[in-house]
Design a protein around this nucleic acid. Structure first.
Length: 759
DNA sequence: CCAGTACTTAGGTTG
DNA sequence: TAAGTACTGG
């Protein structure tokens, strides 16, 4: 157990106190992960069975890091038996195992936020609600917070306070929407992210034997980032720990920055009430940053009223002062910071990866991105669209989802007519209406036209039946062949691969799409390979985890030596030698939206605290006195947070010479630049052209509807020459799918297409 | 069905 | 400004 010698006194005490309720308040950079991992290692050394340990984190990254670190201490074999992961992944596994008790299939789909919003959009439109008051995102937020507070649809509808709130925000039908949403998800065999916590609570509440089982299994429970737990998470942990009370929570109230999504600081305070004889450990020595940085940050956070008292200190060197720089515009800010990084690397031989640019809002990344590119500095912007959210990935995954769970309605809607197979919106709408009428899935209707007569034409019915047959043929192989082989077959047979392949020679974006699909498939291949040849995994196994994966889980071996650009929120838990904290302006940071209440402002201040404490050696703050906002140049004042740092830790940098000149050049250019008015003229010109085109009367339609056959060569006004590859629909709905060498294959309505048939 | 246009809106984010 | 959605004409 020599590894314990690597801990300081309070770290060691916290790690060794493995019995009974324990709370660890861990200041920034105080070695929190180290305590957690050593604590688990110590437990195992003391004879605790790894099967009895559950460790919960908030991000996949944290879970992965901890697994690896424990593995190096106690050995991978032991580490594997610990139940470790995010709340969502750990409880999704428990839910799958017990799904039948709740009436869900064990292979239930996990709807991501996109799916959830799409369900809500269709409900809102079905109910004819005003989609201004009922924006899918807002409605989902409302439902999400209900679920996180364990309020069922029925309880929601009966709660007078909630009804009042919804009336005030012009959403009186919220209760009905929530209930319908829950029903549709259930009928689709789908849980959304919040359900994973909500339904776990239902499971533990309604099935005492299940609760008993997991109480016995998880005799030792650890929770990381406890300040970020919401009520649903809090209650799960409380119930599971109720018998043995071997619960250890680790967190830092000063770094609570997610209250806007339901995190509740009160959970830290409740801990005292729930476990009066708990032991409290404070980790106050910072190993990360210089004295200047630590003390400056302390001074800032001291301005908050709500906090648990602690004194973070460090033995590290005094270090440089925090630099404050001012620029005239946001573009100027980008150039200046980028130049500083360029110089620092050139003069001191540092790595690109020693630098991070942190900002409050994603859109601020633009000016830095431009300047970094100009100087050829490698950078990576974190955040934004993740791999798994990309259209082509979601499309293919939808086929996999549908194969595993036929009732998955969002997957069905996505791919029923992609690639094009002549199943239109109206036909599908009729199916969905029928499904909702009977309270069954759309699949149920489509595979049982005898039982559920629907008024759509036979052609569409036949095509749907073909689709059903195709998916069923995939499903028949789910447990027979390995996941990679099946995934490949689905990609091919469904037509997705072909669809993207015909696009391939079009442009870089199309090529990228194709590459993404290849990347997904190769990801499946490595997942499936597992240990040996005989235990290769199935596609259903892959699908169980895929909804919970994020970009960080992709083991890409790309170059790690780059400047990091990210929001302060996503920087939590990370550290960098040199941090540039940009856009320190009133109404931007603190955000304008946080100025209404003390608690909101305090959360912004904690965010500022998190930002400063990411820095190990140097920290630079910057602000611009004017900034482009939605097309307008607005002037801005320096953030109050700069003033909140004691002057003795700051060094104000004189604005650089020549800056005024370059700005003058820019503005002057904009005012006097002939292209500005030229551009305007161009717009006017193109507008005045349109009526001229319209003046050309459309040619009268020839009888193309009648005698067109597959294989004919035709000519289209816009797409040029092509060959008919498919014909669908009748009368006015008659349409042709035509392959145009220049534009790929298109489907056109014959009524409008004005095709010329070539002799 | 496709493509072009008019109109709206704008935070932070994990799973 | 930029991006996304809803609408409209062929």
């Amino acid at each position: 157990m020599g590894y314990l010698d690597e801990l300081n006194t309070s770290q060691r005490e916290a790690a060794e106190n493995i019995e009974g309720p324990t709370m660890v308040i861990a200041g920034a950079g105080s070695g929190k992960t180290r305590v957690l991992t050593f604590r688990i290692a110590y437990m195992i050394d003391k004879g605790v069975d790894p099967f009895n340990i559950m460790a919960l984190t908030f991000t996949n990254k944290a879970a992965k890091e901890m697994t690896e670190r424990i593995g190096t201490i106690v050995g991978g074999g032991e580490a594997r038996n610990i139940t470790m992961g995010t709340f969502h992944s750990v409880f999704s596994r428990i839910l799958r195992y017990n799904a039948d008790r709740l009436g869900y299939p064990s292979n239930f789909t996990i709807y991501d936020t996109q799916d959830s919003k799409s369900v809500l959009k269709s409900i809102i439109s079905d109910f004819n609600l005003d989609n201004k008051a009922y924006k899918a995102g807002n409605v989902l937020g409302r439902i999400s917070s209900a679920k996180n507070n364990l309020i069922s649809p029925d309880a929601y509808a009966q709660n007078a306070d909630i009804q009042q709130e919804d009336k005030m925000s012009k959403r009186p039908e919220m209760g009905r929407v929530y209930k319908t949403y829950a029903n549709r998800c259930f009928n689709a065999g789908a849980m959304d992210f919040d359900d994973l916590l909500y339904q776990t609570n239902v499971l533990l509440r309604d099935f005492p034997e299940v609760l008993y089982h997991y109480q016995q299994k998880f005799r030792y429970i650890l929770v990381d980032e406890y300040q970020d737990t919401n009520y649903a998470q809090y209650l799960i942990v409380k119930k599971l720990a109720a018998v043995y009370e071997n619960i250890c929570v680790v967190g830092d109230d000063a770094q609570s920055i997610y209250s806007f999504r339901g995190a509740n600081i009160q959970n830290i305070l409740n801990f005292k009430k729930d476990y009066p004889d708990f032991k409290l450990f404070k980790l106050e020595q910072n190993y990360r940053s210089t004295k200047n940085i630590v003390e400056a940050a302390n001074g800032v956070i001291a301005k908050n009223k709500d906090q648990i008292k602690k004194t973070v200190w460090t033995d590290n060197v005094q270090g440089e002062k925090i630099r404050v720089v001012r620029t005239l515009t946001d573009n100027e800010e980008g150039k200046l910071i980028t130049n500083k990084i360029y110089d620092a690397i050139g003069n001191n031989g540092l790595y690109y990866s020693d630098f991070a640019i942190l900002y409050r809002t994603n859109k601020q990344s633009r000016s830095f991105e431009e300047s970094l590119r100009k100087l050829n500095i490698p950078y990576k912007i974190y955040g934004g669209l993740s791999f798994y959210q990309r259209k082509e990935i979601k499309d293919l995954l939808s086929y996999f989802r549908l194969t595993a769970n036929h009732h998955d309605e969002e997957a069905l809607k996505r791919v029923i007519n992609y690639p094009k197979r002549g199943i239109g919106k109206t036909s599908m709408q009729n199916i969905l209406i029928e499904a909702n009428k009977h309270g069954v899935s759309a699949w149920e209707i489509m595979s049982n036209f005898m039982k559920y007569p629907v008024a759509i034409n036979t052609g569409a019915k036949n095509k749907m039946s073909d689709f059903v047959t195709m998916i069923k043929s995939f499903a028949a192989q789910l447990e027979k062949i390995d996941g990679y082989t099946l995934a490949q077959e689905i990609a091919r047979t469904s037509g997705i691969l072909k669809e993207l392949h015909t696009d391939k020679d079009k442009g870089p974006e199309e090529v990228e799409r194709y590459q993404n699909i290849e990347e997904l498939l190769s990801g499946i291949r490595s997942f499936v390979a597992g240990q040996g040849e005989h235990d290769s995994k199935s596609l259903s196994e892959f699908m169980m985890d895929v909804a919970l994966l994020t970009d960080a889980d992709q083991n890409k071996d790309d170059d790690k030596n780059h400047v990091t650009l990210m929001t302060i929120h996503s920087s939590k838990g990370l550290e960098f030698p040199n941090v540039y904290l940009v856009g320190l302006e009133e109404n931007l940071f603190p955000s304008q939206m946080a100025l209404n209440s003390r608690t909101e402002l305090e959360e912004e201040r904690r965010l500022f605290y998190v930002a400063i404490t990411r820095a190990k050696t140097t920290c630079t703050l910057s602000y611009a006195t004017s900034r482009f906002l939605w097309g307008n140049l607005i002037s801005s004042e320096p953030s109050r947070f700069i003033d909140e740092i004691d002057r003795k830790f700051l060094e104000f940098e004189a604005p650089q010479r020549g800056k005024g000149r370059s700005l003058g050049g820019r503005l002057g250019g904009a005012f006097s630049n002939p292209t500005a008015s030229g551009g305007l003229n161009k717009n006017l010109a193109s507008k005045s052209l349109t009526p001229v085109n319209r003046a050309n009367p459309p040619k009268p339609k020839t009888g193309g509807t009648l005698d067109l056959k597959v294989g004919y060569n035709v000519e289209h006004d816009r797409f040029g020459k092509g060959k008919v590859i498919q014909l669908d629909g009748d009368g006015p709905d008659k349409k042709a799918t035509i392959f145009f060498p220049k534009h790929g294959s298109k489907t056109v309505l014959l009524r409008f297409a004005n095709l010329k048939v070539e002799g």
